[in-house]
């Protein structure tokens, strides 16, 4: 059985022809898989070796190196919180603590959020900044963060 759906297969195939070496196409291919399948599973990595001739060691090296690849099933709402300098100066760490305790208020396994610190989101004027899935929130603070999170259900 083929690991990837037909349209995904075709996209992977076209990425493979774009670079001098197939190895160079690993980054965009992993993004494609992630966009189609939510997260990158071991069967995808093994499928790339079996069906497209990419070394699974090379693929796994790339997948584990970059924090933007998801190697676990994701929660409905992924919070990416900036933990770089400007946001840190504006109290990011305290807000993240607040988010953590918000998450802890759910019964185990029922929490719809995941939290990850990420480098600069490019909106330092609105620090502290966070992304929830693809929505941007600026000037997040300990007072408003619970209400923002409560809007995600």
């Amino acid at each position: 059985m083929e690991t990837f759906a037909r349209d995904l297969r075709e996209k992977i195939q076209s990425e493979l022809t774009r670079y001098e070496t197939p190895r160079s196409a690993i980054l965009p291919i992993l993004h494609l898989i992630q966009d189609h399948c939510e997260w990158i599973q071991p069967m995808h990595v093994e499928g790339l070796e079996r069906e497209f001739g990419l070394s699974r060691v090379h693929v796994q090296e790339v997948a584990t190196f970059y924090s933007m690849y998801r190697l676990e099933p994701c929660k409905p709402f992924r919070i990416l919180f900036c933990d770089n300098l400007v946001c840190a100066m504006m109290g990011a760490e305290g807000v993240m603590d607040k988010i953590r305790s918000h998450m802890a208020s759910f019964p185990t396994d029922k929490c719809p959020f995941s939290l990850q610190g990420v480098p600069c989101l490019g909106v330092c004027d609105g620090a502290p900044a966070m992304l929830v899935n693809k929505e941007r929130h600026l000037r997040v603070n300990r007072d408003n963060v619970d209400a923002i999170l409560a809007s995600y259900k």
Binding site: P42, V45, S55, R56, V57, H58, Q60, E61, T64, F65
Partner: peptide
Amino acid sequence: TGALGIFDRGDRAIIGTYG
């Protein structure tokens, strides 16, 4: 054989095989 790689990064990086 290409069985070894460097997985993860920074101070968490480790040498290993797939799975």
